[in-house]
C-alpha cells in the first residue's frame, strides 16, 4: 500500500497530488513535464514535499506536520532511472552487489541467481558499464535495484532512452518482474501501450495533479501520449 498526498512548489510549477494504491504496479501516466518524475523523487526521498504525507505499508516516510522526513538511504526504495546511472568505476558484479553491501545484507545466492537469470545479465558480470549497450545497462540497473531488496521499486521511464526495438526487448523482462519478483512497483511513462501491458492501477498526472485513478480504462482510448 502506497499513499501519497503532497504539495510542492517548483519555481512556477506546482505539484498537488494525492493517490493511494494497492496495486502490484502503480502506473503514473502523463505527458513529459506533468510532474511525474518530481512525484517519484518525492517518494524516493530525493525531493522533500512542502506539505503533506507519504507512507508505504503503514510506515510514514514523510509527514511535514511532524517535520518527519526519512532519509533516502533509509527508505529501502529501489529506483531505476531513465539513464541507468551505473557506477562507471565498478564492474557489473560490483554494481549489482552495491546495494547489498551498503545495507549490510547477507549474501543471498538464490536471489542473485533468480535476478541475474530473470534479467539475463549473468554473462555481463565482469564487464564495465561503458562496454554495455543501452538495453543491457537498463537490465543491470533493474537488477542492481532488486538486489538491494527494496520494499518498493520506482521505475522512471526505464525504456525512455531506448529505441523502439530495444523497448520491445526489455518489456518482457518488466512483465516477468511484475509477475515473479514480488516487489511492488511504481512505473512512470508517457506511453499508453506500456501502461496497458504493465500497470495494474494507473494514476493520470496532468500539470502536477492526479486527475484520474483506476484501471486501464482511465487511459486515453488511442495509444497516442496524453
Amino acid at each position: 500500500m502506497l499513499s501519497v498526498d503532497v504539495t510542492k512548489q517548483l519555481g512556477e510549477f506546482a505539484i498537488e497530488a494525492s493517490f493511494a494504491s494497492e496495486g502490484r504496479v502503480t502506473g503514473l501516466f502523463g505527458a513529459s513535464g506533468a510532474g511525474k518524475t518530481s512525484l517519484v523523487n518525492m517518494i524516493a526521498g530525493l525531493l522533500r514535499p512542502d506539505r503533506g504525507t507519504i507512507a508505504i505499508d503503514g510506515e510514514t516516510l514523510d509527514d511535514t506536520s511532524r517535520q518527519l522526513h526519512v532519509a533516502v538511504h533509509r527508505r529501502r526504495i529501489g529506483y531505476v532511472f531513465q539513464d541507468a546511472r551505473l557506477f562507471p568505476h565498478l564492474d557489473i558484479r560490483k554494481n549489482l552487489n552495491y546495494g547489498r553491501r551498503m545495507n549490510r545484507l547477507a549474501e543471498d545466492a538464490a536471489l542473485w541467481q533468480r535476478v541475474t537469470e530473470l534479467l539475463d545479465i549473468g554473462h555481463l558480470l565482469d564487464r564495465r558499464p561503458g562496454r554495455l549497450s543501452g538495453g543491457e545497462r537498463q537490465r543491470v540497473a533493474l537488477g542492481r535495484a532488486l538486489l538491494s531488496e527494496p520494499r518498493l521499486l520506482l521505475l522512471d521511464e526505464p525504456l525512455g532512452s531506448l529505441d523502439e526495438e530495444r523497448k520491445e526487448d526489455i518489456l518482457p523482462y518488466l512483465v516477468r518482474l511484475r509477475d515473479e519478483a514480488g516487489v511492488p512497483m511504481v512505473y512512470v511513462s508517457h506511453d499508453a501501450s506500456e501502461m496497458r501491458k504493465l500497470a495494474t492501477q494507473i494514476a493520470i498526472v496532468r500539470r502536477g495533479r492526479v486527475t484520474a485513478f483506476g484501471g486501464s480504462e482511465v487511459l486515453p482510448a488511442a495509444t497516442e501520449p496524453a
Partner: peptide, 19 residues
C-alpha cells in the same frame, strides 16, 4: 545523479562519498 543512485541503494552520505 550517481550519488543519488547510490543513496537510493542504501548508501549513507559518508558511504556515498567513500564509494
Amino acid at each position: 545523479r550517481l550519488e543519488q543512485a547510490a543513496a537510493t541503494l542504501g548508501a549513507a552520505p559518508w558511504q556515498v562519498f567513500l564509494t
